[in-house]
């Protein structure tokens, strides 16, 4: 059983404000979802087992840092999508 305290921790981690009723509802949903997805626990017992490693290991995809956009080409358009901007910057509340 997942505790309400844990749901509140997730609320904070996810930066999503919720009502108490919704948190209680989520507590219930989490129980059935986690119970269902936990069926994989027994399939793999040793995470270091080499037969469980990927067939196609991931690799980094790199590119040269060239062909940059002309400076300022998209600035206005992108700033316009931000709810608040000032003098060519996106504006947020002070943090410190």
């Amino acid at each position: 059983m997942i505790e309400l305290k844990e749901i509140e921790k997730l609320e904070e981690l996810s930066r999503i404000e919720m009502t108490l009723d919704e948190k209680k509802e989520l507590q219930k949903d989490f129980e059935s979802i986690l119970d269902y997805v936990s069926e994989i626990q027994g399939v793999v017992t040793d995470l270091n087992d080499s037969s469980k490693q990927p067939l196609d290991p991931l690799h980094n995809v790199m590119r040269e840092d060239n062909n940059a956009n002309e400076e300022g080409l998209y600035t206005d358009r992108i700033l316009k999508s931000a709810p608040k901007n000032e003098k060519g910057y996106i504006k947020v509340k002070k943090i410190l």
Binding site: V37, I40, Q41, V43, V44, L47, D49, K52, Q53, P54, L55
Partner: peptide, 11 residues
Amino acid sequence: NKAVAVRNIIK
């Protein structure tokens, strides 16, 4: 991590 491992088995 377990899900990633099982995903590899399914592949």
